[in-house]
Simulated assay, not measured.
Amino acid sequence: MGEQKRILHVEDDGLIQAIVRAALQTKGFEVVCASSGREALEVVSNYSPDLILLDVVMPDMDGLETLERLKGKIDIKRTPVIFMTAGANQKEMEHYRSLGARGIIIKPFNPTRLHEEIGKFL
């Protein structure tokens, strides 16, 4: 894979964070986790991820608001954002893409194939 790719994973569920971190680190990715949208905004000030995995449903600031605020800090054309959500219909997925998301991963996801899903965007 060459240079280690840096992933920012924004997720309020600690178990999902642990699963994603383990799944991606075993494939050679560097993973930094943020437990909220606010924390993600702080992290991107000092960490330049190659890709952001962003939960849609989070307390306080959901993924949609987080994405809007991230646009003021990073160039999402250069740093793909992929939403992770427990369920989305076609209309919601189109809406997420219209906001700038490059992809959507539906939970539950297959941890052994997660690297392949995000690899399409790196």
Rank of each mutant, 00 (worst) to 15 (best):
V20C: 01
G103N: 08
K77D: 12
I105A: 12
I16T: 14
V31H: 02
D50C: 04
M93Y: 00
I106R: 13
R69S: 08
I104C: 15
L114W: 08
L54H: 05
G119M: 06
E68D: 13
G14K: 12
G100C: 09
A23S: 08
G87H: 15
A23H: 03
R21V: 10
E11R: 03
L114D: 01
E68H: 13
T85M: 11
G37P: 06
A88M: 00
K71R: 12
R69K: 12
S48D: 14
R102L: 11
G63R: 05
P59H: 07
K27Q: 14
D75M: 07
H95W: 14
I74R: 03
R38D: 14
M1P: 14
L53V: 07
H95C: 01
T26E: 15
E92Y: 07
K73E: 15
L24Y: 12
E11N: 07
M61D: 03
N110M: 05
A88G: 05
I76T: 14
Q4W: 07
R113G: 11
R113H: 04
Q25I: 08
F121S: 12
K120A: 15
D60E: 14
D13E: 12
S48K: 11
V10D: 00
R38S: 15
I106M: 14
T85V: 13
T112H: 14
E117D: 15
M61P: 03
K91G: 08
A18R: 13
K91I: 13
R6Y: 07
K5C: 09
P59K: 07
G119A: 07
F83Y: 08
F109C: 00
P59V: 03
D13G: 08
K71T: 09
M58Y: 05
R102F: 09
S36R: 04
M58V: 06
F109S: 00
E68F: 09
A34Q: 06
H115M: 07
A101L: 06
M58G: 06
N89K: 00
L70M: 09
D12H: 04
S36E: 06
N89H: 02
L24P: 01
L8H: 00
